[in-house]
Each structure stands twice: as C-alpha cells, then as structure tokens.
Amino acid sequence: MKYIDHHAHMVSRTTDDYAQMALTGCLAVTEPAFWAGWDRSSAQGFEDYFRQLTEFEPKRAAAVGMQHYCWLAMNPKESDDRELSREVLKRIPKFLDRPTVLGIGEIGMNRITRNEVDTYTEQVELAIAHQQLILIHTPHLEDKLKGTRVSVDVLGRYPKLDPARVMVDHAEEHTIEMILADGYWAGLTLYPQTKVSPQRAADMIEKYGPDRICVAGACDWGPSDPLAVPRFAMEMRRRKLPDDLIHRVIYENPVRFLSQSGKFKVARHKLHHEEVKM
C-alpha cells in the first residue's frame, strides 16, 4: 500500500512519526500553514514558520524517503486580526516560487467573523492572482456548516476560479454535498473525536463514490493520529471494498489534485508509471 497524506502538520510531530508514516507506505505529505495553539506575536514569526515549512520539514521528510510539500497562508484562527493578517499576506508572495510550495492554505474561517471573512477573501484573491491551488479549512463542530456555506459563497464570487483547483477540507456528512455539487474537491480528515472517524469516512466514500474526495490524517499538536490514513484503508478492507478503490482514494486522488500545482513531481511520475502498466 502507498498513500499521500494531503493534510499533516508535521512541525508538531516527531521524527518517529515521519518514520512510522514512511513504514506504512506514505510517499508524501502536504502541510498547510496553521495555528500553533497560541497566537504569534508578529508577522516575522510567520515568516520564520514559512521558512520552517519550506526549508526544514522537507529535509526531515527526506531522511525517511518521503516528500514534503506545503501550503502557505494566514491561518483561520489568527485571521480575525486584520492588521497582522495584512502583514502576513504581504510576506507570502516571495515564498510562492519555492519548489515545495503547492498553493495557498489552509485558509478559511474559525468563528466566521466579518474580519475572518475579509482575510479569507483576500487570500482567495491572492491565490487567484498568483495562479495557486487553494486548500480551505472549514471550521470545527457547530461552526462547520456556517463556515462551509460562507466559504463556498465567497468562492462563487470569482467566476474565473476553477473549482477543480480548490479543495474544501474537513468535510463531514452535512457539508460534503454542497462542496462536491459546486465542483470542488472534498477533503475528509480523520480525527479521534472532533472530525471524521475512519468508519464515517468509508461511509461517505460508499455514499458519494470516490470522485474528487481525498482522505487525510490532519495530524497536529492535538489528539490526532499520523497513521490515520492507513487506518482508513484498514476500515475499507474490513468492509471488503476493493483494493483499487482504496488505492484511488488514498493515492491517485491526492496525486491528481496536487499535481495541478506543477511542483508535485515524484508522485505524479509514479502514477504515470502505474497507468502505463495498466
């Protein structure tokens, strides 16, 4: 089994976690910029974080034979601070040409404030201006429905934005239909309590099929599991779902979405090799 975890906050994980992921078949992770669990004090702190994502983490991943890519953004939890957000957004473009930066993310909302909507909108425009892929965080728990509705509504104001270049992440049963209906990719993130279990993710694959759906662990500094994707694969096998369906969801789908950046090269080569064999 091989897989791609499109959402993994590896700055919060140990080198042993990288090794475990590699041992279970993970070929590449993509790491969205996110909240550290506390608010940073300055835009310079974000710049250091972006350097960590683009310089240090790829080396840690490479030590176990994995690829590490990233997404840059002002994260939703701090995006209500408009002044700080503007400063951070000014610093992002100079990182976008780095070889492992796939796009703008994770952008979105936390409590869905007016300020958060404004920062989110500016980041959508930043992505469009720089022809970047977009990875969208949808809020937690009771805020997910509203946050997804508002996020998708803002995207709809940009008719030139290709929905196939946008992944709306952390989808759940009550939001996945609106995401897929508008042509976006839907991400299912596997959390022990606050998002989706492997069982519920498998249910959604059964209900909606595998088109434009990816599954990730979203491991971070909180209760989470860097091996969540292989546990999802185990759940699919438990139901006797076919191996080619599992492969499509955990490998081919993320490769198809991520390769649109033009930088996601090694995995794309492997997919091509497989298609030639078929």
Partner: peptide, 27 residues
Amino acid sequence: VSQIQMLLSDPTTEPLPALDRKSAIGA
C-alpha cells in the same frame, strides 16, 4: 448522522460582528 449534524450546527449565515471566543463548543 446528517440529521444529528444539522441539529448540532449553527444554521445562520451572517458573520459575527466581532470575535467572541477562539474555539467551538460542539453544539
């Protein structure tokens, strides 16, 4: 599951005028 998700969710769409708290509660 969809019915339960909906009854736990904020059904509104109007953004909050100001940040009230950092985290969600669950219902």
